[in-house]
Amino acid sequence: MKGEKNRKDLNLFDKSLTIDEDIEIAETYKKTENMNNTVIIKDNYEQIVGFSLGNEFFGIDILNVEEIIKPIEPTYVPNTKKYLIGIINLRGKIIPIVDLHLKFELDKGYIGPESRVIIVATKKCNVGFLIDKVDRVYYIDKKSIEPTPANVPQNLEKYIKGVGKLDSGIITLLNVNEILKDNVALS
């Protein structure tokens, strides 16, 4: 039983993220263990990649994240919606890039030294999300995830899975599949 759990851990840590999640997770473990004096059961927790977009804080399920890269100049694609800033070549694969600022109609950000592209993978496709800054991976107790609060703007509501609580505040969990459902082509 224990061996199996360790193996699982190894797999989860194998994601080559650019942030030192191991330490963070170890801390989270310790904390929880001290408090409850029990072993964490992974199934009760969601692993979320946290990132910021303007002043807001968002999260994507780690299972949807394939990798995180620095922004490279995309090739503009005509006849597409504004938030699709173009396509890039990622090791021979064509990846469309969505600027989440524009997608969520937040203040138009610009690319700074900390800007990153999160490559998300779903069954349907791989797409890059341009965001301001990647934070780290959080373990969020499934029970602490609440439904979307009422004050969320209507145009965003369908993209949001729920809101998770962190020590430092709240994190808005995004529904990647829903974001990718929209048609990007201009008619």
């Binding site: 694609v77 005509p78 006849n79 699709l84």
Partner: peptide, 15 residues
């Protein structure tokens, strides 16, 4: 192909 996300883009057949 441009993939499943970029479908039916006018005037573009691929990359």
């Amino acid at each position: 192909s441009l993939g499943n996300y970029l479908t039916n883009i006018k005037a573009i057949s691929g990359a």
